[in-house]
Design a protein around this nucleic acid. Structure first.
Length: 96
DNA sequence: CCGTTGACCAGGC
DNA sequence: GGCCTGGCCAACG
């Protein structure tokens, strides 16, 4: 099993209404280079099954991605799931 | 095959 | 506090 696929599995394990940071996923997968996580999501082979909008930066701010239509779109999706923001950042209590 | 490049992060200056 | 660096994995040209 490649590191790549394990990243997607971890992302899919994120429950609705919670978020995970890139570094959290990297630790879970067992790699030190967190860029791989971001890079894997950038590839995003099947957006249908991968909730990439639940992945945010360590400080709670949104990543500048485009696979979900931009940070604005991502914020809307998270708000719909009940994730609250504070000063344009996800609150600590929503992290896994 | 090899250099470059990332949806990032922590540590050192 | 901000800027620089290393991290070391996979895809792309």
């Amino acid at each position: 099993m490649s590191v790549f696929k394990r990243i997607y599995q971890v992302v899919q394990e994120i429950p609705k209404g919670r978020v995970a940071s890139y570094s959290w996923i990297a630790r879970k997968v067992g790699i030190r280079d967190v860029r791989l996580v971001g890079w894997a999501l950038h590839r995003n082979p099947n957006p249908q099954t991968i909730p990439c909008h639940r992945v945010v930066k360590k400080d709670g701010s949104l990543a500048s991605g485009y696979a979900f239509g931009g940070p604005e779109k991502q914020k809307i999706l998270l708000l719909k799931e009940g994730v609250r923001f504070k000063n344009n950042r996800v609150k600590e209590e929503y992290f896994l």
